[in-house]
């Protein structure tokens, strides 16, 4: 299978890569670009551990072809903190114990950030439904919801 050259932007950086036409973006990120923050929990869009945004839209990178990244703007977990400064969501996830094993955490953070960009004051129910495609087997979700809400409150300037 002949590889295709793709030019894209990841976390603001220009990136070029070669990939085969059938290669999911997730495999490109992990195996070709060393961006292993996105995880493969299922490869079929059922778990959300590979969440990234493409042109601002939250997607599972396992359900996007690498070749579709041509000309796109991609954001991954690796771009969430600014240098040493964690995003409020990242900080609240640590402080509120919203992770146990942490393997679903990158996907949940990317998804939660996408939610708060659309809706700065979600209800708990809205957070739960938005994140329904991000499976977490450790926490029972309670502390994740709490962490998203406390980060949202901080981002609204309420703390």
């Amino acid at each position: 299978m002949k590889s295709i050259q793709v030019s894209t932007t990841i976390n603001g950086d220009p990136v070029e890569f070669l990939c085969t036409p059938d290669e999911p973006l997730l495999d490109v990120l992990r195996n070709r670009l060393g961006l292993t923050g996105a995880k493969e929990g299922c490869g079929t869009g059922d778990c959300g551990a590979c969440s990234v945004t493409v042109n601002g839209r939250l997607v599972c990178s396992c359900l996007v072809l690498g070749v579709e990244a041509e000309g796109a703007q991609i954001e991954t977990i690796e771009g969430m903190a600014q240098g040493e400064t964690l995003h409020p969501l990242q900080r609240h996830f640590i402080e509120k114990a919203a992770l146990q094993c942490g393997v679903c955490t990158p996907g949940i953070l990317v998804a939660a950030k996408s939610l708060l960009e659309k809706n700065a004051s979600p209800t708990d129910e809205e957070v739960r439904y938005w994140l329904a495609g991000n499976l977490c087997r450790c926490t029972g979700y309670d502390k994740i919801i709490e962490a998203v809400q406390s980060a949202a409150a901080e981002m609204r300037g309420e703390v």
């Binding site: 869009g45 969440s51 939250l58 997607v59 599972c60 996408s114 495609g133 991000n134």
Partner: peptide
């Protein structure tokens, strides 16, 4: 259909 992520596509 599917999750928020799937809805995006």
């Amino acid at each position: 259909i599917g999750s928020t992520q799937v809805q995006g596509r």
